[in-house]
Simulated scan of single mutants.
Amino acid sequence: MKFVAFERSTQGTGASRRLRNAGKVPGIVYGGEAQPQMIELDHNALWQAVKKEAFHASVLEMELNGQTSKVLLRDLQMHPVRQQILHVDFQRVSAKTRLHTKVPLHYKGEEESPAVKLGKALISPVLTEIEISCLPADLPEAIEVDLSKLEIGATLHLSDVALPKGVKPVLHGKNDPVLVTVVMPAASSESEDEAPAPAPAADQPTAE
């Protein structure tokens, strides 16, 4: 994805407020061999971009002063009430330097799994994203997780998923985190086998 940024010469609370009133978003780009640089972006264009998942989990091309560089979105500050972006941070990336970033997990095949199809179980995601390490060229927009083989009573761990080439998980002390669990629905309070017995027939009057 590509976007256009503009050099920002002023800083401070007052300057940022004026930018926002003019439909701009203050930001900064840092990392690499260059010094951190203050930037500004068009709010409407940025608002449309952040709605796309790829903008949060892929290497972006930023055009600034006629030059294009590769960056990652690192922080996005939102207004607590209004639909407004207050500030944005980007990090420059190098083709030869490994990245540490989070990518979303896309689960598929749930309805075809034995757990759901035969056992009427519920599959409950535990994680919706994971942190990974990879070179920029190997960064996936998302990691697909196939649930079509999931059995009743099973638990899917990260080690059960084949990660894309060049991608390694960043575990932070967790050896093998759980991705999804299989949950059986609560049993009905009264099953057919436990239906109450019919009431006994009333005594018939006897003939005299």
Results as ranks from 00 to 15, higher is better:
residue 176 D to G: 01
residue 92 R to A: 11
residue 58 S to H: 06
residue 144 E to Y: 01
residue 66 G to D: 05
residue 145 V to F: 07
residue 108 K to N: 03
residue 86 L to F: 09
residue 93 V to Q: 02
residue 137 A to M: 05
residue 113 S to D: 14
residue 91 Q to T: 01
residue 86 L to I: 15
residue 144 E to K: 02
residue 150 L to Q: 04
residue 79 H to A: 14
residue 164 P to K: 00
residue 62 M to T: 03
residue 117 K to H: 13
residue 87 H to I: 07
residue 70 K to Q: 15
residue 131 E to R: 00
residue 50 V to E: 13
residue 134 C to S: 13
residue 181 T to M: 12
residue 62 M to A: 12
residue 68 T to W: 01
residue 132 I to H: 01
residue 131 E to H: 05
residue 152 I to G: 09
residue 104 P to E: 00
residue 86 L to K: 05
residue 128 T to L: 06
residue 145 V to C: 03
residue 102 K to C: 05
residue 150 L to G: 09
residue 153 G to W: 04
residue 65 N to F: 04
residue 114 P to T: 10
residue 176 D to A: 03
residue 98 R to D: 14
residue 106 H to I: 15
residue 115 A to S: 15
residue 87 H to P: 14
residue 84 Q to L: 14
residue 107 Y to A: 09
residue 74 R to V: 11
residue 170 V to I: 10
residue 72 L to H: 04
residue 133 S to Y: 05
residue 141 E to A: 05
residue 100 H to V: 12
residue 108 K to D: 07
residue 173 G to W: 12
residue 183 V to R: 11
residue 101 T to G: 02
residue 113 S to H: 14
residue 133 S to F: 11
residue 67 Q to S: 13
residue 76 L to K: 11
residue 184 M to V: 08
residue 76 L to E: 15
residue 168 K to I: 03
residue 126 V to M: 13
residue 71 V to R: 01
residue 92 R to V: 09
residue 123 I to Q: 09
residue 138 D to Q: 08
residue 68 T to E: 09
residue 64 L to D: 13
residue 171 L to I: 14
residue 127 L to F: 06
residue 174 K to V: 13
residue 89 D to T: 00
residue 66 G to F: 12
residue 48 Q to I: 09
residue 71 V to Q: 07
residue 146 D to A: 08
residue 123 I to A: 07
residue 163 L to D: 05
residue 120 K to H: 14
residue 113 S to V: 11
residue 58 S to Y: 10
residue 178 V to L: 04
residue 51 K to A: 13
residue 178 V to R: 00
residue 128 T to V: 09
residue 118 L to I: 15
residue 174 K to E: 11
residue 145 V to S: 06
residue 160 D to Q: 07
residue 54 A to R: 04
residue 101 T to Q: 05
residue 56 H to R: 04
residue 164 P to T: 02
residue 116 V to E: 09
residue 123 I to T: 09
residue 71 V to M: 06
residue 160 D to S: 07
residue 155 T to D: 11
residue 114 P to N: 02
residue 104 P to A: 02
residue 125 P to I: 00
residue 144 E to T: 08
residue 130 I to Q: 05
residue 67 Q to T: 09
residue 159 S to Y: 07
residue 88 V to N: 00
residue 183 V to E: 04
residue 175 N to P: 08
residue 100 H to P: 06
residue 56 H to Y: 10
residue 136 P to Q: 06
residue 143 I to R: 00
residue 172 H to E: 04
residue 62 M to D: 08
residue 59 V to D: 05
residue 85 I to N: 07
residue 102 K to W: 02
residue 77 Q to W: 00
residue 97 T to K: 10
residue 122 L to S: 12
residue 105 L to Y: 12
residue 119 G to M: 13
residue 132 I to L: 00
residue 138 D to L: 02
residue 136 P to F: 08
residue 73 L to F: 13
residue 66 G to A: 10
residue 154 A to R: 00
residue 137 A to T: 09
residue 159 S to E: 05
residue 56 H to K: 13
residue 105 L to M: 13
residue 64 L to N: 12
residue 122 L to G: 02
residue 185 P to E: 06
residue 134 C to A: 14
residue 143 I to F: 01
residue 137 A to V: 14
residue 84 Q to Y: 00
residue 166 G to F: 08
residue 54 A to T: 10
residue 185 P to Y: 07
residue 82 R to P: 06
residue 183 V to S: 07
residue 74 R to Y: 07
residue 98 R to Y: 03
residue 170 V to N: 03
residue 169 P to L: 02
residue 89 D to H: 00
residue 81 V to W: 15
residue 137 A to K: 12
residue 177 P to A: 06
